[in-house]
Amino acid sequence: MMGKPEKSTFSAAARIFRFYYDGFTTMSWWGKRVWVIILIKLFIIFIVLKVFFFPDFLRKNYDSDAQRSEYVLDQLTLTTPADD
């Protein structure tokens, strides 16, 4: 009773895998080129920029949401109007 659904699930998964595998392996020149660009771009965005240049300011400087709320409340209530 359990064998058929497992087999069909497996074969569906295999077909999907095959679909993507064939797609990637028979990709055209431009397809390969843009995938290289995508991977480099994602590396720069998520590894270089996010980790080294874009820390979350409130998470980095405050330990709890209560402290973050306090900080923002101070900004909202204590900041003097800008001169310009």
Binding site: I45, L49, K50, F53, F54, P55, D56, F57, L58, R59, R68, S69, Y71, V72, Q75, L76
Partner: peptide
């Protein structure tokens, strides 16, 4: 990313 880093009070 910029929301979290440069515009944190706004994001909050």
């Amino acid at each position: 990313f910029e929301f979290g880093t440069n515009w944190s009070s706004y994001s909050w």
